[in-house]
Design a binder for these strands. Structure first.
Lengths: 369, 369
DNA sequence: TTGTAGGCGTTATCAA
DNA sequence: TTGATAACGCCTACAA
């Protein structure tokens, strides 16, 4: 045994210096041996590794390594809601799954950051967290005020579902086209009087920007129908309950619309419940459409007419944008940080993934008057 | 302006040293001023803050601060599955929500770590992540091999739904009591031949330990019924599809059981679908029970008979255990680290939260033979 | 092939 | 009230 007995203090985690001392080499040599990154003689390497094992060395201290390297292997997922609500949406689960998968390929992990307090507190919390990049889901709007701070820190930022900010890559889908295809489908069935259940638009809601785009698209598509009439009702949250409440308000009108266009499948499920509670047949008395194409596991052979968006792919795509930006950005300061930064800036992507209309059993011709 | 012009290099994030230089004070004074942690004259503080603003100082670098303080403000949530599957379970969403809420009160955040690769890779990834504590959900079993590494690092660990490891606090619920109450309810309705759909037990599944406990409890409760017969069928995953598949296998038997006890509401929904697909009435032809008490948003006035467990509270409780352990553990090495550690060890909590039987519309007397 | 030096950005301790 | 000093643990030039 060459190891001396001046090991780490009781209870303290062994450090590379401890290992080096025990192995009788310098810290840098120990580093090379442990990380396998550099020329070390077989003999010394074995001695170092033995010492490491003997001391229960747990590998490089993540924080210290991060400080030195300028990268911490963490990508923040910033959601504009409480996690309990955000993950109540299967779409979000799919998105985060795709994100995690792709981010995981380079060994990074996801930091989950809900932002639902006041803007200042949210920004402060974000500022205190170590991260290489941030993916803003439903809170990339200027209103959230999160973007400036993150960019000033030099954090790589990608937004999801917009609204797009200058110089920030964004992943979204064809909200307008999807909405239009739904309305056109209803129009071809003969519907004219259509109710729209919108997602919350406040900065607290999931996916701001989305409701605005989809509502505008629905409006113009409905108005393009001869005698088209639009009625809009906002859900306070993207939950089944809120969808049911909003749909109920429309259905309880003296002359209810013949079709409901919900801006998410979750809201659409609320519509189905509202109809069912009022003994209205779907699609006999009222047609219902959703948006997302998540699996609602409805019983009795019901299939929601909806627009299917690729949630998992959205996550993977966001991840790829993050990884690309991290690649082209120097970890710490390097000779030319301005150049790659500009490159990233110039190529600030606006990716719109395609969606597909899925016609199910919840839409049909309107009831005769 | 006292600020000199030797500011940070282009593109580099401003550092406290930059601020101090610009304000003409020492770094330590700047630190005190910026953090408001110490006696600083009004005048200097203003000068420092002005300099900080002028340089666009973004606050202390999180990693550097963490290294110095020995705490990084991150709690890892380690789940034994892909995130897409884990969060498909509303129970998990509720749990993480509660966890995040409570953890957020001290300004910490959640790191999401899926472990579904080989044990070695999972452990290695975990070892490279900075965290103050880890909450193991469905992967605290010895089989996962994650515990030793985490403990050796000095990370605070809390497991959820066991199985309990020595010296590690655990939060769970009364699985046995809940299961028993379901079986007793079925027994009192006259059921004797009962099928059990179990959650996956492998380390890859969500909540190992749970299936074993619930299955054992179901077995003994059913056997306590006169002429009781148990048939067990395992779901490969905690998904509706898997529940449907497993239930289908039981229902397609020559003499199918008169009741299905699913170990989660998600699996129970699969049972309902399996029944519906076979034109079996629930509860007329077959009774179905779940476990969890999450909102499945079933249409048509169906309410699942199930055991309601407090998912959000489970998260909050796990968080409180984490915070308590962090409180009693020294951030870095201190005079007496052995003492508090021992205290935490001694009080390694086993918290079992209560559950409640909820009788819905999916259980009734068995069909006459 | 190995060791030395320096620094990543911050903060705790102490002395002035 | 302020400043100098020394870590926190690691890694990478560079020199030997």
């Amino acid at each position: 045994m060459t190891a001396d007995r001046s090991g780490p203090a009781r209870g303290r985690r062994a450090t590379l210096a401890d290992v080096a001392r025990a192995a009788g080499v310098s810290a840098s040599t120990a580093s090379l041996a442990v990380n396998g990154s550099g020329p070390v003689s077989c003999d010394t390497r074995d001695r170092v590794l033995a010492a490491a094992r003997g001391l229960g060395y747990q590998g490089p201290h993540p924080t210290a390594r991060s400080l030195r390297r300028g990268r911490c292997g963490v990508v923040a997922v910033v959601v504009g809601d409480r996690l309990g609500y955000a993950f109540r949406d299967p779409m979000m689960a799919a998105f985060v799954d795709g994100l995690a998968e792709e981010i995981g390929t380079v060994g990074s992990s996801l930091l989950l950051v809900p932002t639902h307090e006041d803007a200042e507190a949210d920004a402060a919390r974000l500022a205190g967290l170590a991260m290489d990049a941030a993916v803003l889901v439903g809170c990339g709007s200027p209103g959230s005020g999160l973007l400036p701070g993150l960019l000033a820190r030099g954090t790589v930022v990608v937004t999801v579902d917009g609204p797009p900010a200058p110089g920030v890559p964004d992943v979204g889908i064809d909200d307008e086209g999807g909405t239009r295809s739904l309305v056109d489908h209803l129009g071809s069935l003969g519907h004219r009087d259509i109710g729209v259940i919108t997602l919350p638009a406040s900065r607290d809601g999931t996916r701001p920007g989305v409701p605005r785009r989809r509502t505008a698209a629905a409006r113009s598509a409905i108005e393009a129908l001869p005698g088209g009439r639009t009625r809009v009702r906002a859900a306070g949250r993207n939950t089944v309950g809120e969808g049911e409440r909003a749909a109920g308000a429309l259905l309880d009108a003296a002359d209810p619309p013949s079709a409901l266009v919900a801006q998410s499948d979750v809201l659409a499920l609320g519509c189905l419940r509202a109809a069912s509670a009022r003994r209205l047949a779907v699609p006999g008395d009222v047609s219902v459409t959703g948006f997302d194409g998540v699996d609602l596991h409805l019983l009795s052979g019901t299939l929601l007419t909806t627009v299917v968006q690729p949630g998992q792919l959205k996550g993977r795509t966001a991840a790829r944008l993050v990884l690309a930006a991290l690649d082209s950005t120097a970890p710490a300061e390097t000779p030319g940080p301005a150049e790659p930064l500009a490159a990233a800036d110039a190529s600030a992507a606006r990716i719109r993934l395609p969606v597909a209309l899925r016609i199910g059993t919840t839409t049909g011709p309107p009831a005769p008057p």
